[in-house]
Design a protein around this nucleic acid. Sequence first.
DNA 1: TAAAAATACTCCATAGGTATTTTAT
DNA 2: ATAAAATACCTATGGAGTATTTTTA
Lengths: 309, 309
Amino acid sequence: MFTVRQMRYFDALATTLHFRKAAEMAHVSQPALSAQIAEMEEIVGAQLFERTRKSVVLSEMGQRLLPRIRSILREIRSLEEIAAQKRGLLQARIRLGIIPTIAPYLVPVLIPILRERYPALKTELKEAVTSKLIEDLRSGELDAIVAALPIEDDMLTVEPVFHDRFLIATSANDNDVLSSPMTQDNVAVERLLLLEEGHCLRDQALAVCSATRQRQLINYGATSMATLLQMVSHGMGLTLIPEIAVRAEAGHTKMRIVPFADGEPRREIGLIWRRQSERREDFHALARCIAESAETLRLSSEELSVLAQ
Amino acid sequence: MFTVRQMRYFDALATTLHFRKAAEMAHVSQPALSAQIAEMEEIVGAQLFERTRKSVVLSEMGQRLLPRIRSILREIRSLEEIAAQKRGLLQARIRLGIIPTIAPYLVPVLIPILRERYPALKTELKEAVTSKLIEDLRSGELDAIVAALPIEDDMLTVEPVFHDRFLIATSANDNDVLSSPMTQDNVAVERLLLLEEGHCLRDQALAVCSATRQRQLINYGATSMATLLQMVSHGMGLTLIPEIAVRAEAGHTKMRIVPFADGEPRREIGLIWRRQSERREDFHALARCIAESAETLRLSSEELSVLAQ
DNA sequence: TAAAAATACTCCATAGGTATTTTAT
DNA sequence: ATAAAATACCTATGGAGTATTTTTA
């Protein structure tokens, strides 16, 4: 009979209706997936998918099997979670995804806290943009993710964990911000540097800085906060920096970092997991640790005044 | 995560609570099963079974997993059956178990009928005593079995298919049966030859021949109808022979075969499958073929009078 | 002809088997 | 001492990967 692996591949192919994409989703090569699908068809003695040049569609038999296989995979996932729920909180492995504008700042603080408080916990971390993380979360590749809200997904449960203020980062010899305090309206959009497409922070920055004048944008997407801030410190422009990133990034570069003069633009960071997950308690405990970690990254007014010089 | 195979082994071990027996039930060696259970425990990071010298018991984690795993295995079995239900009747593989006192006579007739009527059908046959067949049927190793009724099992559905008369077989030079026609009461129990323990026909023969005088039994169990009838034809005693066996067995041996003078003792043969099986239509079709096969094995009165000489 | 799936092949990890040891009563 | 499970060790197979061919719109 079918193996669990075969059913996973079947599910992927039924979802994508495309061998290469299904293989990608299943993290295997296309021939590996083809072989397993062929093996399944051999077993039932009938085609599961009808292939033509431009399309792959479920055969009648495939349609009959799909809901059952999905249901089995769901049950297996729930089995995994029950197995993970050892006695007690956070005693098992947790596979956590974190977006790139949080991970490098949060992780060095979070991990020691977890290690001290839950020594039996094994953490596996993955850094990727929100859309990729959500995909992996839904597929069961990850147990939970840390990302910026809002996230709307029927399959997922979202718990807000902390707020992260946006500040403005400019070159240290740039006096604009001192002469005329920056507001969300008067920020020099034509000098605004952004992360590359896909990062939620890029979109948030645009939303904050009255993105009506988007035509004037510098069309260069940095691949990480660190390179973005390198650019800023070399006088190439200015950018939004999340508060949690400041201490790590501002230390070794000559930058001026100031709050907005009007209001407090910020992003809300949440912990997200599959709705049917049986590990709610685990995730709540984890969320508390994350909130604590974020707290330690918050800047005091003394630090802020130094950075604004 | 677990493989289907591992879950099957887990189920077997949770059922038997004995590694060797579980391995037997799963048709693998004991170390193979041990290795897979160890692998599962490695995966969850906890013991699933607590082993002591005299007992294997489910751990707390094992208990938590067991119902889920059973449920997954049930779903997988149902998946198999849906897959087997190709369009149309008997188009798929059918794994059929038949008891040893039927198989050699029925199979040569049944197979050609099936091959002609359902050319797409793949049959896999297994011959074993009823208790073994029921075990394999329940475990999903077989799809259906042919055995003597009654069979009482909540998990199974029984369909009566045909009746099979019992006749008396004696050596050709044995004149007892001619001088005084045999009845179920006067049969010479002290000369009655039987199959070995485990065969239902042995018990039926005893029931037919007023088994009140069981002390006088010859304590020799033949391993098959053929050897039993060899013994009879060599004058070692007499035995009950099912009608379906007569033509095949009486041809090449010097035996006298006569009906009982009183009544018509007989066994009822049925087709049995798992209650939740989705292949009822397949099984009904198969039952019809079996009934037809049995019909062709029935003896005419002419044949009977020849055999009685 | 270009994209997609199938095929060919090689390699390695996994599961299986047999023989043997360890363990607990 | 004995029965049961674990371990050691070897083998075979299944599934993976890369490279390549076949297919069809």
